[in-house]
Design a protein around this nucleic acid. Structure first.
Length: 476
RNA sequence: GCCGAUUUAGCUUAGCUGGUGGAGCGUGGGACUGUUAAUCCCAAGGUCGUGGGUUCGAGCCCCACAAUCGGCGCCA
């Protein structure tokens, strides 16, 4: 199909936009972005700007209209003498979040926020906002604080109910940009390391995580479940692709009421043939550090705008992540007077104590076999342990990676299932994959939302996903 | 699943020992030619989450229910 190509100059070169040929009678494509204006690319030019009204102020002869688009904010000045009575009145009556097209001259101005402003020559409202129904999110709604007076815009019931409108406010827009860069960084990391992207089904027949609750879905007279992890299906493809990864949603029907949990979260998972626990961990460290580095390279201004300490993020990008065996962690905790005994799983309250002195993420390895499910491979050097790892983020953000070597021989996996009293039948396809050329292998799952939440310094994981799903909320 | 809270105008909230609810933002009207979350004046806007109880009288005390938030368990 023939399409009209419009080439637009942006900071990073030419961007191709595709407009339907002739059908709309002309192009709606936008050619000027606020971010570029504030970077000085349009000084002295007369331009056409398309955007939304963020705020207005002024007198009855001079109006200031702050416009926003996806790249930033800019102050526009409208003078009665330039615009004429009719257009000036329209500008005066335009409400917040009206969409507008404004023509004017870009000037440098020390008085304008950002250093530039536009002196308007024309002003046209595209989508008006009704005064009977003004944009409900105002500065008061954004002023939500918790009991300690800390800003907590993600915790307001009103903002959660109006999430579809909250998305366009500056904090949420910033979080979505950080999130995008994090997703891109994960793809780049694994592709650069010769991993192949691979998709597993979201409807599944059985559990992956022992103990985690599954969401049931009616499935043509049968019951299916929403996947908790791609792992079992990734292991099936491991002999074909050897190094594979995905970024996909996982679902867990846990009534967790914490700032680290969602019922639907984005899971970056990798699986790797011929790999030891140490080698898998090296990729876990590699991808997390690459995400931190990418955020600094691509989103420094955004991180600063939400008051994130850039030196802290740089520390996470530039330093190796130490490894600590489970036994050592337990001893450390006991030394701190924490009531924990060997064989206990380390819950969040203990993780928090353990990580309070960490200045970078730490791996915890070699958990007792009794604390982990059957697919974790037993350490041949000491069969009390399994070859696994968790990566714990500092600043109280908790576990961001869980992974390790998999039980790979058919004989051993059957023994582990029997030891646990887990029935074989639901895992028959998984056991089958061991019967034909099993090899040592492993992988990990990374909670993408958790990593973004941590690196952004968010007050709640809800802050970094557009429409959070928790045990109490599936709307909007 | 467990524990702890909250619910007053569109939003954010004040409300004393129980005696007919105040404000800021937003909206409408007015003033102002350089504002920076503009400012100043005026106005409209409330069956105080729902149901019941105590009382001469309930936003406030008691009970139930509902919605939501925070923390824990579990995990990414």
């Amino acid at each position: 199909m023939v399409q009209t190509l419009i080439f637009i100059k942006r900071m990073k070169g030419d961007i191709e936009l595709h407009a339907p040929n002739g059908r709309t009678g002309g192009s709606m494509a936008k050619t000027v972005w606020i971010g570029d204006i504030q970077d000085g690319l349009h000084n002295g030019q007369t331009i056409e700007l398309k955007g939304w009204i963020k705020r207005t102020r002024g007198s009855n002869k001079l109006r200031f209209v702050v416009l926003r688009d996806s790249t930033g904010d800019i102050q526009c000045v409208g003078k009665l003498t330039d615009l004429g009575e009719e257009v000036f009145e329209a500008m005066k009556g335009a409400l917040i979040e009206s969409s507008v097209i404004l023509n004017g001259t870009v000037v440098e101005s020390e008085k304008a926020p950002g250093g530039h402003e536009i002196v308007a020559q024309s002003f046209q409202i595209v989508g008006a906002v009704d005064p009977e129904r003004p944009f409900p999110i105002n500065k008061e709604a954004l002023n939500v604080v918790d009991e300690d007076g800390e800003p907590m815009p993600g915790g307001s019931e009103f903002l959660l109910n109006n999430r579809h409108l909250y998305l366009r406010t500056s904090r949420m827009t910033t979080m979505l940009k950080l999130r995008s860069s994090a997703f891109g960084a994960i793809h780049n990391y694994f592709r650069n390391e010769d991993f192949i992207e691979y998709q597993a089904p979201n409807f599944v027949a059985g559990a992956v995580e022992g103990g985690s609750t599954l969401f049931e879905v009616p499935y043509f007279g049968e019951t299916a479940y929403l996947t908790q992890s791609w792992q079992l299906y990734a292991e099936a493809a491991m002999p074909a692709l050897e190094r594979l990864y995905t970024i996909a949603p996982s679902f867990r029907a846990e009534e967790s009421r914490t700032r680290r949990h969602l019922t639907e979260f984005w899971h970056a998972e990798m699986e790797m043939a011929w790999a030891s626990n140490d080698e898998i961990m090296a990729h876990g460290e590699g991808v997390v550090r690459h995400i931190a580095r990418t955020l600094l390279d691509e989103r420094e201004a955004e991180l600063s705008s939400i008051d994130r300490d850039l030196e802290l993020v740089a520390r996470y990008a530039d330093n190796p992540y130490p490894r600590m065996r489970y036994d050592e962690a337990v001893e450390t905790l006991q030394g701190m007077g924490v009531d924990v005994k060997w064989g206990d799983d380390l819950d969040y309250s203990k993780e928090k104590v353990l990580t309070q002195d960490f200045d970078v993420p730490h791996f915890l390895t070699h958990y007792p076999k009794i604390a982990k499910p059957f697919y974790h491979r037993v350490d041949t050097e000491d069969e009390k342990y399994v070859l696994c790892h968790d990566l714990l983020a500092p600043e109280g953000y908790g576990e961001i990676i869980g992974g390790g070597e998999r039980t790979w021989s058919e004989e051993e996996i059957l023994r582990r299932l029997d030891e646990e009293g887990t029935p074989r039948e639901p895992y028959q396809f998984y056991i089958d994959t061991r019967a034909y050329g099993g090899v040592p292998h492993g992988g990990f799952g990374l909670g993408v939302d958790r990593v973004v939440s941590w690196l952004a310094g968010a007050s709640h994981i809800r802050e970094v996903i557009p429409f959070p799903r928790t045990s109490r909320r599936v709307k909007p």
